[in-house]
Amino acid sequence: MKLHEYQAKGVFADAGIPTPPSQLADDVDGVVDAAGEIGYPVAIKAQVQVGGRGKAGGIKLVEDEDEAREAADDILGMDLKGYHVDRVLVEGAVDFVDELYVGITMDRGEGKPVAMVSTKGGVNIEEVAEEDPDAIAREHVDPAFGMHPYQARKAVYDAGVDPTVARDVSNVLMTLYDLWEQKDGSDAEINPLMVTADDEVIAADAVMNVDEDALFRQPELAEMEEEAASGDELEQKADEYDFDYVRLEGNTGIIGNGAGLVMTTLDLVDHYGGEPANFLDVGGGAKAQRIANALDMVFSDDNVDSVVFNIFGGITRGDEVAKGINEALEQFDEIPKPVVVRLAGTNWEEGMEILNEDLVTVEETLEDAVQRAVEYAEEVEA
Rank of each mutant, 00 (worst) to 15 (best):
V48L: 11
P20H: 05
F12V: 04
R342A: 10
V307G: 02
D305W: 00
A188R: 01
T264L: 14
I75Q: 06
A152K: 01
I75K: 04
A373S: 13
V88M: 07
A377Q: 03
E364I: 12
R69T: 04
A188H: 02
E127M: 14
G314C: 12
G52K: 09
T19F: 01
T316G: 09
L76P: 02
V31F: 11
E139I: 00
Q371G: 09
D26A: 12
N356L: 08
G273P: 08
E233F: 05
D205N: 10
W348F: 10
A166Y: 01
V195S: 11
Q218K: 14
D213V: 11
T164P: 08
M78T: 08
Y40C: 11
D26V: 11
N356M: 09
D213N: 13
D319W: 00
T264H: 09
E126F: 15
L80T: 15
Y376L: 13
V195M: 12
V341H: 04
D199H: 14
E379D: 13
A188K: 02
N191W: 03
E63F: 10
E139D: 03
S306R: 00
D33E: 13
Y101G: 08
H4E: 11
H84G: 13
E275I: 05
V141F: 02
G30H: 05
A93H: 04
A369I: 07
E65L: 14
R138I: 11
V165I: 15
V31E: 03
